[in-house]
Every structure is written in C-alpha cells, then in structure tokens.
C-alpha cells in the first residue's frame, strides 16, 4: 500500500468515526460549562440513534432521499426532550448530577431496546432503508491529491466541524455564552447580576440533549445503520473524554474528538499498516481514556473544570 492511499484511508475513517463524537462532545461542553455534569451523554446518543433509526424505517417511503436528514432533526428533538429529565432531576430536584446521568443512561438503553422489542418483535431493528452516503463536494473534489481525500466524505463530518466553530462563537463571543459560562463558574454572582441561573442551566442541558441526539443519529445512520442494545457502546463516554481532553473548549473538544476518532479507526484498520501491526489493539482502543486521565492529572497541560461544576444551585442560600 502506498503512502497516499494509506493517508486517504486514515483521514476518511477519522472523519467518519469522529463526526458523532464531535456533536456529542459539543453538547457536553455546553452542559458542563453551565455547571451541570453530563454523564448521560451516552444515553442521549442512544436515544438519538433509536429515534433516527425508527424514523428512518417508518417514514422512508414518505420522505425518500431526504429521510436521513429529517431523521436527524427528529433525533435532535427527542434528544432535547429526553435531556429534560436530566435537567429536572439535577437542576430542580437537586439530584446528584452523576447519579442522574447514570439513570439517563439506563433509561435510554432500557426504553430504546424495550420499544424496539415491543414494536418490531426482535432485539434489533432492520437495516435502515435510507442511510447517509459519501458525497463529493463539487469543485473542491477536483483539487488534485487532497480533493478526493478531504472532499469525498459524509456531509455530517463537515457539519460537525462547522458546528464546533459555531459553538465556540456562541459560547465565547455572545452575551448568551458569557451568561452560560458565568452560571457554571459562579452561579451566585451570576444570579446577583440578574442572570436566571435555572433558565441558563436548563437551556444548556437541552442543547446538550439536542447535540447528543444528533450525534447518536449520525452514528446510527452512518456507521451501524440499525438499532440494538449494542449500537452505542461507549461512544458517549468517549465524547465525554473529548470534552475533558479538549479542556471544556468547543474547538478543543472537536480536536480531541477527531483524535479519538483516529485512534478508534486505527484500532480497526491499524493491522494493515506495517508500523502499527505490532501494537496490540487494546492500547489503541484504550488510548483516548489513558490520554484523558493523563490530561486530567496535568501531564498534558492542565485541564480545569468550570468552578461550579456538579453543584446544584439553591437560590437564597449562601
């Protein structure tokens, strides 16, 4: 295999594997920046994957080729609604954010598989009739060498990268973003300045649900193309790792997700590369997690969480 085709495979599989991670990680950035820990990203992806697949199967004949895109919108909507459970429990009911997130993960998987069994009579849905496909970007595709590598991928991969920059702009360049971050750093001070802490946190969690649902929907419609208990197995937690490895910054999280996507794809296709063939694949599979621990421990730059993360804000209590 020559160098160029090796690079082509690597870049393509990196973009392919990391798009769902980027969306979900961006959701995690919003939630955690507002002070709400979101271990439930995994569950939000599950519910997104479930909604997208069920919608795709049910309405493929009505929407034709646009089905997967409508399905993504549905996954976003249902992800947002589902995340309200986490919001109510952790913001209003003052539940431990981590515990509530664990419950979200249980509920999403339980409900998804339960409904699939109830509706389809099996633990696994059929393959979706209208998956997403590679698309060539006109003009750019014709650029020699890099054109075929960079501009013949899933559109969702480009979208993910664009959304990361939008998220950066929203969080760091708009009043809304400033308020959202202030609520996660020092809710009492934010409240004093007239910011509605509860409202901001609710919004942030719902945004994380929308993006998590989108991530799950993309994953299901590009990679697995069906839904079962084993559709989403840890991608949500990799996204969470990307949030931390990216130091709670949207573009950082995107970079981390791209890197973790690369590590994941290397674990699968690495045996075809002479240098990587001797590396046991558990090391590649574990790389995102090991790196995240090292980052947290301060070995790879300091990763500091938002100050008020994981704490419930109780109005009127000092």
């Amino acid at each position: 295999m020559d160098i160029l085709s090796a690079i082509e495979i690597l870049v393509k599989s990196m973009l392919f594997a990391s798009a769902p991670l980027i969306f979900t990680a961006l959701g995690g950035v919003f939630s955690e920046r507002s002070g709400v820990v979101n271990i439930g990203l995994e569950g939000l992806m599950v519910i997104g994957a479930f909604s997208a697949v069920v919608f795709n199967i049910t309405f493929a004949s009505a929407f034709g080729a646009s089905t997967p895109w409508v399905a993504l919108l549905v996954a976003m909507g249902i992800g947002g609604l589902f995340s309200l459970i986490h919001a109510v429990a952790s913001i209003t009911f003052r539940a431990d954010h981590v515990v509530s997130g664990v419950a979200i993960n249980f509920l999403a998987l339980g409900l998804g598989v339960y409904l699939v069994k109830a509706w389809y009579g099996a633990g696994q849905t059929d393959k979706i009739p209208e998956p997403l496909y590679y698309q060539k970007i006109p003009l750019l595709y014709d650029i020699p060498v890099i054109g075929p590598i960079l501009f013949n991928n899933y559109v969702t991969s480009y979208l993910a990268i664009i959304v990361a920059f939008i998220a950066w702009y929203v969080l760091f360049k708009t009043p809304f973003g400033l308020r959202l971050r202030s609520v996660g750093e020092h809710p009492l001070a934010a409240d004093t300045m007239g910011i509605n802490v509860y409202k901001m946190r609710y919004l942030a969690v719902v945004i994380s649900g929308v993006l998590g649902g989108l991530g799950g929907g993309v994953y299901a419609q590009t990679i697995t193309q069906d839904f079962s208990a084993s559709t989403i197995t840890g991608q949500g937690f990799i996204a969470l790792a990307a949030v931390i490895f990216g130091k709670w910054h949207p573009v950082g999280a995107m970079g981390a997700a791209l890197f973790f996507g690369l590590a994941q794809s290397l674990a699968i296709i690495g045996s075809s590369f002479p240098l990587l063939a001797d590396v046991p694949n558990w090391i590649l599979l574990s790389a995102p997690y090991v790196l995240t621990i090292l980052a947290l421990a301060g070995f790879i730059g300091r990763a500091d969480a938002p100050k008020a993360i994981g704490t419930s804000y109780i109005k009127g209590k000092r």
Binding site: I85, R94, S100, A103, G110
Partner: peptide
C-alpha cells in the same frame, strides 16, 4: 417475562432507572 407475558426484559432496566431518579431526587 418475555416467555410468560410477552413483556420485553428491558422493562426492568426502565424500572431501575426510574428508581435511581427518585432516590437521587430524594430532596423532592
């Protein structure tokens, strides 16, 4: 459950998730 009543096994996952929510939300 599936054999005897047709109810999918995952019902119990849902029940467990709800229990966790309520125990965690003990404040309310």
């Amino acid at each position: 459950m599936p054999l005897e009543s047709g109810v999918p096994t995952e019902l119990v996952e849902i029940v467990i998730a709800i229990i966790i929510f309520f125990v965690a939300s003990s404040y309310i």
